[in-house]
Design a protein around this nucleic acid. Structure first.
Lengths: 225, 225
DNA sequence: TCAAAAGTGTTAATAGTACACCCATGA
DNA sequence: TCATGGGTGTACTATTAACACTTTTGA
């Protein structure tokens, strides 16, 4: 060990994940009803400890994967929560990330094993420790980012209708939007491409399916919704 | 020690501060030309290790105070940098904050003792480790936040002219603004209050001094510049 | 034929941008 | 008197907001 670091205190470091999903027109979080100690029986975020030989970003990816089986998920650091007593058991510094996942693609078995459940944003149960604050900050960050970066598509299937897209943004921002104004704006973004496919699950008439073209977006990365 | 945490790895945790100041129409950073090991002689951010019985936010305040002698400084967490090899000496996880200080109020003696210097944003020397990335992210965050929250006033004296205010925002965003449009916008924000005082340091005619009234702002917190 | 979701334009209001001259003062 | 920074208004453009009816189709 290098002499300059010898005498310094060391800390437990954890990651916690705020996992967003979009289903039935609602924004949801994947939360654990803990079937393990500590705080067994209570609700919490999915979390885990950072490991010795692991970048913190990778810890977050690993923890998310342990619960959902998913890789290559959009994740963003929210911040670090480092108050002395935030975990009543022992001091743990937690680095918090939010994740956006397609709600039909996760591994049901793993989720069941962890006793995790999708909960609507406005029906979130009391959470342990400072997890409520983490959720609040994650939501605020995600709302802001989703308005100027095309991250919402991570919550949708590869092909989606304009109604789905609008409902998603209404759910994220918790406010209704005007259909014609919304579509006018979408029409200006040529990286949101109409396909020939039609989805008939929600109407007899059917609605055109669209896709997000990231290559086109990268050429002229301007987005706001 | 609680049984659930026993086997977990522990980590050195540090804080690093990106200290912004505004002087002579320019945005500047307070950087250290290190007169101590490791990396002695090289340029870096002001940093320090978190202590056992200290909230991380308080570690940042302490470290800032050690360099500047200042308390009650506006600070905001930028994020946490946790790659394994970011510090070549040993693994250190760093929580990064930016600070906005009034450039005439810091403690010269302390700053000299640390061999710290104010450096213009466009003349930043090569920095150690991942400090350049930290600076980049801090600047981007500060630019975004300064556009929708009245944090810029932390960089100005309590009384300031409109020219100073405009120059500040021009420095933050690295772009010129139109004087009349700028003043029109300021006039709509009634928490930016004109005083009877006149500053004659920059013109024979003198310019009215304004102040930021936080109480008025809180009543109707809308800001954008 | 009718219920239900998809799709489509125009107008008004607001916000943002561009632009040039007079004012007050002390040296 | 003149050089210097302080202060002011108007016209144009772009963006956003409000608003209602027709289309398609399968049951």
């Amino acid at each position: 060990m290098n002499q300059y670091y010898k005498k310094r205190a060391k800390f437990h470091v954890a990651v916690d994940c705020i996992i967003f999903g979009f289903d039935e027109g609602e924004l949801k979080l994947l939360l654990l009803q803990r079937n393990f100690q500590p705080a067994k029986g209570q609700w919490s975020l999915m979390g885990g400890f950072a490991e010795e030989e692991e970048n913190i970003d990778d810890s977050a990816k690993r923890v998310l994967n342990e619960l959902t089986g998913l890789d290559n998920v959009y994740m963003k650091q929210v911040g670090t929560f480092g108050n002395i007593d935030r975990d009543p058991g022992e001091r743990v510094i937690s680095v918090v990330y939010y994740a956006l996942i397609k709600i039909n693609e996760y591994d049901r078995e793993l989720v069941n094993k962890h006793n995790a459940h999708w909960v609507k944003m406005d029906e979130i149960p009391p959470l342990i420790f400072d997890h409520p604050l983490m959720v609040k900050q994650a939501l605020e960050l995600m709302q802001r980012q989703s308005s100027y970066e095309p991250i919402g598509f991570n919550l949708l299937p590869p092909l989606f209708t304009l109604t789905q897209l609008q409902t998603l943004y209404e759910a994220i921002n918790a406010e209704k939007m005007d259909k014609r104004n919304f579509r006018k704006k979408v029409a200006t973004m040529d990286f949101i491409e109409k396909t020939e496919n039609i989805d008939k699950t929600n109407s007899r008439r059917g609605a055109y399916l669209y896709k997000f073209n990231n290559k086109v977006y990268k050429k002229d990365p301007k987005f706001n919704l």
